[in-house]
């Protein structure tokens, strides 16, 4: 039994890892078919996992309500919303008595109505909260505590101005004639922004990308050769 719990998963991971890696270099139709087949398996697995996910959701919230833990009212809302969305999408009954279209899939059906008029606005709201959070985070956290923090602060401010029309406007009103150098802008945020994004930013991003890719190769090798096993729930 211990074999199936310890060694067997590692053997599967090793064989599949090598097969899928080799497949990358083989452009034949059979190799593509193999890939498609495994993708199909993955989708089937995902389907079953989705059921587990729903069970987990229901179990978690039901327990919360049963034990009357703090905030259990929200769990009631979650479960009610879950049931309503599921029923309106699945039940083959007519909703015309509520003024909805008969066809479930139609945009006038109850499911799409709830999706468009409740879900989409709520999603947009969550996203727009970002604007407020950015303002407060910048105000609270952008402090010149050290040299690095100061550099981040200055770069952040320059880019914020340089990326909006105010920056262009500032650059144009401060343009002066400087003899042989031609017309030069004294406060040119867009120019500095451009430089910051193209030189230090791109350089740093590349460094990080290279490091990340190498780490990904390393972690892949560790997993394929069974050196890293934490993700299987096993010991070291």
């Amino acid at each position: 039994m211990l074999f199936f719990k310890r060694q067997w998963p590692i053997i599967i991971a090793f064989v599949m890892g090598i097969v899928m890696w080799a497949r990358f270099y083989i452009p034949t139709e059979q190799s593509q078919t193999l890939q498609d087949e495994f993708m199909r398996w993955a989708r089937i697995l995902f389907g079953f996992a989705a059921m587990l996910g729903i069970l987990s959701l229901l179990h978690h919230h039901w327990n919360k309500i049963k034990l009357k833990r703090p905030g259990f009212g929200f769990s009631v809302v979650t479960l009610v919303a879950f049931v309503i969305m599921a029923l309106t999408g699945l039940l083959p009954v007519s909703w015309t008595w509520l003024g909805f279209a008969d066809n479930l899939r139609s945009s006038n059906g109850p499911h799409m109505y709830l999706f468009e008029h409740m879900f989409v606005p709520m999603q947009a709201t969550m996203f727009s909260v970002l604007a407020f959070f950015i303002a407060s985070a910048a105000f609270r956290a952008f402090r010149a505590r050290s040299i690095e923090a100061t550099a981040l602060l200055i770069a952040g401010c320059v880019i914020m101005i340089g990326r909006v029309p105010v920056g262009d406007w500032l650059a144009s009103v401060t343009t002066v004639e400087m003899g042989s150098w031609g017309a030069r802008s004294l406060i040119n945020f867009p120019y500095v922004t451009d430089w910051l994004l193209n030189i230090p930013n791109a350089a740093a991003q590349r460094g990080i990308i290279l490091g990340v890719i190498l780490s990904q190769i390393a972690i892949s090798v560790r997993i394929i050769f069974g050196i890293e096993r934490t993700y299987m729930g096993g010991g070291d």
């Binding site: 604007a131 952008f142 952040g156």
Partner: peptide, 24 residues
Amino acid sequence: GMDAQSAVHVFIVLSIILANVCYF
């Protein structure tokens, strides 16, 4: 939308400066 974005960016920059002055 650019005017709104300009206004908010300028506000954030000014507030960062103000916060830092007070911090010092």
